[in-house]
Simulated scan of single mutants.
Amino acid sequence: MSETFPLVFSVTSGKGGVGKTNLSVNLALELAKKGKRVVLVDADLGLANVDVLLGLTPPRNLFHLFHEGAGIRDILFPTPYNFSILPASSGMSEMLTLSTGQKLELLEAMDDLEGSIDCLIVDTGAGINENVLYFNLAAQQRLVVLTPEPTSLTDAYALIKVLKMAHGVEHFKICVNMAKDAATAKEVFKRLYQACDHFLDGVSLDFLGFVPRDPSVRAGVVQQKPFCAFAPDSPASQAVAAMAETILTWEPPHELDGNIKFFWKKLLFR
């Protein structure tokens, strides 16, 4: 990971219920444990739950940035796990589709954090709606989460297809969550890889790893604590820690892909 430029990656999925937000929270914790200054953005703007998973009640969220004039540092909220979150609102219909002006406002506001963070994790909503696509395009890397369920595989492919066909995105990291074992996870990845290879010319998939089915994951959710803190020696926690190690080797892109990014000014003028 670059020491002078924040690494920005989205954690995204085609289908809801695949454990995307839980993975985002635990990756943030593991990267923070490795000494990185981490901010996790809850970009599921209408159905936010990062704060719920952490058992936190921030007084402000991204709604206040767009509608009440709050600054980004007014919203930034520290967690007990040495990373901070930018929480979003839940049940606010005004947040379901950001206007072009609001998208640019958020990108501009985020510039204020550039020098004080090493890693920005963007937990998107599920699906292929406009907000999901926007946050995926604004990230440098995209981590697509899916499970062994056939519907999850189909929806992950649909998300990749839209990002490739409509926006020219070709590189994706893949995590298989809730897998029975490594063989199951690799088979899921193989099926997604074959579909993309056959129908989407130029798409590159990189298998980041898998998180096994593990009762500690559910126990952490119930207790509103990250499972990597609740049960650090569990198989799921060890898997996430290994993925965090790999993420530390990622580098910012060497050239822009035509989509406006978080911290794009520094990317453009470095």
Rank of each mutant, 00 (worst) to 15 (best):
P87Y: 04
G14T: 01
V162E: 02
L143Y: 05
T246E: 15
A244Y: 07
D42Q: 09
F189V: 04
H64N: 14
S152C: 09
L104M: 15
G258Q: 11
N136Y: 06
R213Q: 12
L96R: 04
F269E: 15
E108I: 08
L98V: 04
E68Q: 13
S152P: 10
N49Y: 09
P148H: 10
R73C: 09
V39H: 07
L159M: 13
V8K: 09
T124C: 08
E130I: 07
L45G: 03
A241V: 06
F66R: 04
L205T: 01
H198W: 12
L56P: 00
S89L: 07
P212T: 03
K20A: 01
C196W: 02
G209N: 06
V11Q: 03
N61R: 09
P148W: 03
V41R: 03
M165I: 13
I247S: 10
T12V: 10
G55M: 08
K15W: 01
C175P: 02
C119M: 12
G35T: 08
A179S: 12
F269I: 12
V11W: 08
N49P: 02
L192C: 03
S152A: 15
N131L: 04
E130S: 14
A183M: 13
L248S: 11
L98Y: 06
R213N: 02
E251P: 04
V50T: 10
D42L: 03
N22Q: 12
D111W: 07
Q194H: 15
F189M: 04
P78H: 10
E251C: 12
P87H: 07
L106F: 08
M1I: 10
L7F: 01
V221S: 12
L256Y: 08
G115Q: 14
F9W: 08
